[in-house]
């Protein structure tokens, strides 16, 4: 499902070049729940951004869902992200101006789905994360755990093949974190969605199928 070959990423300023990733190879088969761990600044988020087509590698090749996407750009990359990828962020990144259900509908908005169908799918996704009773609330009226569940509903509403989660439990207490992990595990099992999760939490990482460790931009296990 995800193929990274010889990926390197460097950030360059006028005077300094920083290597974030070095010659990284990674293969994630469809349906796998993979976690990535490593100390701060080791390149975890950079790796996730490259998988999510949010960032471009300096060199190397990226293939997602059987498609070579390294050179995708503009509306092509936007469409690919919309159809194949779902994102979950540590800080939730919900749009406070929109209600919960409107937030969940967001990916479908760019898929030109009718309003009625959007609403149906969004409510279904909220049902799946146990928040259908909060559909018309606004994000500011929710707890951290509830916000992350809304973010998960938003990530799955378009039925993407891949979910990329950047420390989804990082801002939550352990109880809430467990709840979120349960939801992700269930999604992986029931829908067969491939999930790649960056985490600092060894306990959460153990709940996934496989753990990849990074250090100084290189894969160490």
């Amino acid at each position: 499902m995800i193929e990274l070959q010889n990926i390197s990423k460097s950030y360059r300023t006028d005077t300094i070049e920083t290597l974030a990733l070095q010659h990284m190879n990674l293969s994630v088969p469809a349906g796998e729940f993979l976690s990535i761990m490593g100390p701060s600044g080791c390149g975890k988020s950079t790796l996730l951004n490259i998988m999510g087509l949010i960032d471009e590698p300096t060199e190397g090749r990226v293939a997602l869902a059987g498609k070579e996407v390294t050179n995708y750009n503009g509306s092509k990359v936007a469409r690919f992200r919309n159809e194949q990828l779902g994102f979950i962020f540590q800080s939730f990144h919900l749009i406070n101006d929109l209600s919960v259900v409107d937030n969940v509908e967001l990916p479908l908005l760019y898929r030109r789905v009718s309003g009625k169908e959007r609403r149906r799918l969004a409510l279904e996704a909220l049902e799946r994360v146990g928040l259908s009773n909060r559909a018309n609330h606004f994000p500011t009226q929710l707890s951290g755990g509830q916000k992350q569940r809304v973010a998960i509903a938003r990530a799955i509403v378009g039925r993407p093949n891949i979910i990329l989660a950047d420390e989804p439990t990082g801002n939550l207490d352990s109880h809430m974190g467990d709840e979120i992990m349960d939801i992700l595990t269930r999604l992986n099992q029931e829908l067969g969605t491939t999930i790649v999760m960056v985490t600092h939490d060894e306990r959460m990482a153990k709940k996934t199928h496989r753990l990849v460790r990074l250090s100084d931009g290189e894969r160490v296990s």
Partner: peptide, 16 residues
Amino acid sequence: KSEIAVRKAFGADSRD
């Protein structure tokens, strides 16, 4: 800014 980034992450292109 973050709203725009989220929209782009979920499939909005620059024109949208």
